[in-house]
Design a protein around this nucleic acid. Structure first.
Length: 582
DNA sequence: CGACTTTGACCGGCGC
DNA sequence: GCGCCGGTCAAAGTCG
């Protein structure tokens, strides 16, 4: 898809309109000449017609100039794109062996990207979700990963969203197979559908994986990430807007309450599954665990949750599959495009964890991220209903890491995140521009002693804790929903958090390109938040996006886009309303 | 009658 | 190798 095509078309049609207008004017003038009885009137009309024609001609000229300019820009970008693609293909063919060479290359790429970002500052960066650094590339080395990352970015810059996504899919076939590329939005669903049709249900995977993809899958042993949502809910299931069919029920060890297994029935081939279970310690808490990515358009009410889970899963996976490169932080922290989104990676990853209940389904070999919408004594008293958002790789599992993200209260000021933790507000700000912010979101890198600071919550928290202190809300989902849906800033913050992690995770794996995915591609506005339409993010942002034909297409976070509906809300899912009791 | 739920059986991964 | 456990299947039952 060529970004300039629509522009050209519009402009040319505009020119046509102009010439038509000129002809009309001329005809009117002639007609008036013929029909006018008074010569004076004829002269007047002629003059006015001439004047009008002059204006039209001027406008025509302007439009032509505009068209020329756009055409030149397009050609320029196209040339840059081809150059970059050519360079990257050469690089990826011969990955550097020397570590110093890798670092040097990464630095060069970062510099180039900064320059490019300046040039393309008007383009909306649409990076949400994993990058195309597939397992093989990650194994080969950071340099090749970063180059793929960079390639993608530049494609994005020159060709727009659609091409970038296409390229991404081509570059990472394996990724589609073993990891959920979130894309609940109908806008992108066609593309994702194309890819995920090849993602068979579990049993089929077993048989089909014996092929060439097997190698990739073995190299990337991470299983599908899960997103666990803890809510206080009286109903058997949480209404997430999707349609589910129960296919099994089990009594899990350590929890007297049975665990119900559901699969998505919106599309027959949809691989998404969810598990629903009551918390053993607090039966009022409903634990819903999502796994997989929808390969079909979702109803509006379902996209939010789907995208949330997908985004969370995505970042979890990126964190799990990537070896957080040391090159990440430099570009992230210094990136000018962050717009207040500062990321900090540190090595304290294991100092703070929110570990889910032992009875949680997440206690399997799947990496799991938990969104805790309950307020429990373990978390400090909070006026903030969306209390915890944590993820954890299963303890004592093959994933030797645990992750957590807590949307803590204003008092605890702790937001922990995967492979490490976000520290919200309580962290020591080391960078000058952070000092003015109340909150800081720290992402502590899992492995490397690198740091990324992220203060995406600043605007939200400033608003809510300084300007408009909110009274304590009841500890209910309804309260959470209300607070979330009524505060677009928080939605933005959440989206940014997810997105940033995804970017960081991706980048961690792909090396130097790291930060830019996070950095350049986030436009952190006051109320709006533009991200990549690919998968994850799209849900946060409604589907008003164009199909990505134009560079600069942006997806904006919409109020009420958040997933969590009240338990009693009307359900679009029959199984949700009339479902079985576990 | 079709869609959905229930429930016991089965399978594979993992730890011992 | 064996048993435990989580997850899935599929036949039978239920419901509208």
């Amino acid at each position: 898809m060529k970004p300039s095509s629509p522009g050209k078309k519009n402009l040319s049609s505009g020119n046509n309109e102009v010439s038509v207008k000129s002809n009309t004017v001329r005809a009117e003038a002639e007609h008036s000449m013929a029909s006018s009885s008074s010569r004076k009137e004829q002269d007047d009309e002629l003059e006015s017609a001439k004047a009008e024609m002059g204006e039209v001609k001027e406008e025509n000229k302007r439009l032509k100039m505009y068209l020329n300019r756009i055409t030149k820009d397009y050609q320029k970008l196209q040339m840059q794109f081809y150059d970059i693609v050519g360079q990257d293909s050469k690089r990826s063919q011969a990955p550097p062996n020397d570590e110093h060479q890798v670092v040097q290359q990464i630095e060069e790429e970062e510099e180039k990207e900064k320059e490019k970002e300046k040039q393309e500052s008007e383009l909306v960066s649409l990076t949400l979700g994993r990058f195309s650094s597939d397992s093989k590339r990650e194994d080969k080395g950071k340099a090749s990963g970063s180059s793929s990352h960079r390639k993608e970015e530049e494609i994005r810059g020159s060709e727009g969203l659609s091409l970038a996504l296409d390229y991404k899919f081509e570059a990472s076939k394996s990724e589609v197979d073993d990891e959920p590329l979130p894309n609940p939005s109908p806008v992108n669903s066609s593309q994702e559908h194309k890819e995920e049709e090849t993602w068979p249900p579990r049993k089929v995977v077993k048989t089909t994986e014996s092929g060439g993809d097997d190698e990739v899958l073995q190299q990337n042993p991470a299983k599908k990430a899960r997103v666990c949502v803890r809510t206080r809910c009286d109903t058997p299931t949480m209404n997430d807007g999707c349609q589910w069919r129960k296919y099994g029920q089990k009594i899990a060890k350590g929890n007297p309450c049975p665990r119900a297994y559901y699969r998505c029935t919106v599309a027959p081939s949809c691989p998404v599954r969810k598990q629903v279970q009551r918390c053993a310690e607090d039966m009022s808490i409903l634990i819903t665990t999502y796994e997989g990515t929808h390969n079909h358009p979702l109803p509006m009410s379902a996209t939010a949750m789907a995208s949330t889970t997908c985004a969370a899963a995505s970042m979890l996976l990126t964190g799990s599959t990537s070896s957080a490169g040391s090159s990440v932080p430099s570009s992230i922290s210094s990136h000018p495009a962050l717009h207040g989104l500062n990321v900090y990676l540190s090595d304290n990853s294991k100092s703070k964890f929110y570990l889910p209940n032992t009875s949680l389904p997440s206690a399997s070999s799947h990496p799991t991220i938990t969104l805790d919408l309950t307020s429990t004594p373990s978390s400090s008293s909070s006026s903030f209903p969306f209390n915890r958002f944590s993820s954890a790789y299963p303890t004592a599992s093959r994933y030797n890491t645990s992750t957590s993200l807590n949307f803590g209260s204003s008092e605890s000021n702790t937001v922990s995140w995967g492979n490490g933790l976000f520290t919200y507000g309580g962290s020591t700000q080391q960078q000058p521009y952070m000092k003015s912010h109340i909150g800081a979101l720290n992402i502590n890198g899992r492995a490397p002693p690198s740091t990324v600071e992220n203060n995406i919550y600043q605007s939200f928290m400033q608003k809510n804790h300084q300007g408009h202190p909110q009274p304590p809300l009841p500890d209910t989902i309804a309260a959470a929903t209300k607070a979330i849906t009524t505060d677009p800033n928080f939605q933005s913050a959440l989206a940014a958090a997810l997105t940033s992690i995804i970017g960081a995770g991706n980048n961690g794996g792909s090396g130097g390109g790291a930060a830019e995915s996070l950095a350049q591609k986030l436009k952190w506005g006051e109320q709006s938040f533009a991200v990549n339409g690919n998968g994850c993010g799209s849900s946060f942002f409604n589907k008003s996006t164009s199909s990505g034909s134009q560079p600069g297409s942006s997806i904006f976070l919409q109020p009420n886009a958040l997933p969590f509906s009240t338990p009693k809300s009307a359900s679009t899912s029959p199984s949700d309303t009339g479902n079985h009791s576990n």
